[in-house]
């Protein structure tokens, strides 16, 4: 699977920083001159960057703690379930989660462009993003020791 992502600061527009208080997500990795932003599922505020409907925005990642909501209480959507129509009642829309690195079980792996996701709306019509997952390739499973992996955009791991 993938419990968090990192994106280069340079890939996000300045307006987003003001609107979503992104400054506190900025992290410097090692000696790199390129700051990154981390978005982790266990974060106090659970969000992901999303390319959807022609724009890049920051969206709530799944539904971590709201028992009242009709939305599935997870951050991930199994591609098999999506294909089987189990999410149809939520009217999911495809989106892309732009990312440069992904984190799973302590291993940061490189992401060329981003990950596939779906956007669904809650009772208040607020959009939420779920990260798509699929059975892990042997390579990915060796790398992260996880049997599920994200769906990468234009990339095979």
């Amino acid at each position: 699977m993938c419990k968090g992502i990192s994106i280069l600061k340079a890939r996000l527009k300045q307006e987003l920083f003001d609107e979503y208080e992104l400054e506190k997500r900025i992290v410097a990795r090692a000696e790199s001159e390129q700051p990154e932003l981390h978005f982790m599922y266990p974060d106090p505020v659970v969000e992901l960057p999303v390319e959807w409907d022609g724009q890049t925005l920051i969206m709530e990642w799944g539904n971590r703690g709201n028992k009242e909501s009709k939305l599935p209480r997870t951050g991930w959507c199994r591609k098999e379930s999506l294909d089987a129509g189990k999410w149809r009642w939520l009217k999911p829309e495809p989106c892309i989660i732009p990312a440069n690195f992904g984190l799973e079980k302590g291993v940061w792996f490189h992401i060329d462009e981003g990950l596939e996701g779906v956007v669904v709306r809650d009772e208040q019509d607020k959009p939420h993003v779920y990260m798509l997952t699929q059975a892990a390739s042997v390579y990915y499973e060796n790398m992260t020791r996880h049997e599920r992996m994200p769906v990468l955009v234009g990339q095979v791991i």
Partner: peptide, 18 residues
């Protein structure tokens, strides 16, 4: 091809990812 890897600790994994 990924300029942002400059300056970072990077490891390339072999044929089986292990």
């Amino acid at each position: 091809r990924h300029r942002h890897l400059l300056g970072l600790p990077v490891g390339v994994l072999g044929n089986h990812g292990a």
